[in-house]
């Protein structure tokens, strides 16, 4: 997915009313970051995508981008449309859509906290949402290593030892045998 990233201009997507294919009733469309909010506004006000289902991000750390995904739904045509916007990871910022849907502010607050994506002007975007008192890097970023974090933060239960099957059998059955080197 990460490699085939085509961006369409707002004109291109505007001209073709996004019709979702198949029974799934689901389609994804990529737009440029500067045109996304205008496009989503049009989707909401003109094309009947009145329901913001969710708004989240995917971290493509290897490409240094966040892929924002706005999922909107059209109740009349019963279709879901995922509007995807790639923004650079470095200094990630995006226009807010809280004026379109008030609850978008909550999503944006979470994205700020979990991914470090800023939405200037979004109400309460800098307030902590879930992680009160968190000082580390935004934990949903892929460079945050949960295993390392838990090893540094918690103590393993004492007395736990395990054995790798193949290594243990070597130790028991052919410990000094001269085999592969």
């Amino acid at each position: 997915m990460a490699t085939e990233r085509q961006e369409r201009t707002i004109q291109e997507v505007k001209d073709s009313d996004p019709v979702c294919d198949g029974q799934a009733g689901l389609k994804f469309v990529h737009v440029g970051a500067d045109q996304a909010v205008a496009y989503i506004t049009r989707l909401r006000d003109v094309q009947g995508y009145t329901h913001l289902v969710f708004f989240t991000a995917i971290d493509y750390i290897e490409d240094s981008i966040f892929r924002l995904t706005y999922m909107v739904h059209n109740y009349a045509s019963r279709q879901d449309l995922g509007v995807q916007v790639d923004i650079p990871r470095q200094g990630a910022t995006m226009e807010s859509i809280h004026h379109l849907w008030p609850h978008a502010a909550t999503y944006q607050r979470e994205l700020k906290e979990m991914f470090g994506i800023d939405f200037p002007g979004s109400p309460g975007v800098d307030d902590s949402f879930i992680l009160e008192g968190w000082t580390g890097i935004p934990p949903m970023r892929r460079e945050f290593d949960t295993k390392l974090y838990s090893e540094q933060t918690y103590f393993p239960r004492p007395g736990r030892v395990t054995h790798d099957t193949a290594a243990y059998m070597k130790e028991k059955l052919y410990p000094s045998e001269a085999e592969t080197w």
């Binding site: 799934a24 689901l26 289902v53 969710f54 995922g82």
Partner: peptide, 22 residues
């Protein structure tokens, strides 16, 4: 690789899973 959004009507409303595979 691919992405999908699946939803269902739970007692509280729209429950959904957005899944992305690489």
């Amino acid at each position: 690789g691919g992405q999908t959004y699946k939803k269902a009507e739970c007692t509280r409303g729209e429950y959904g899973f957005f899944m992305v595979s690489d």
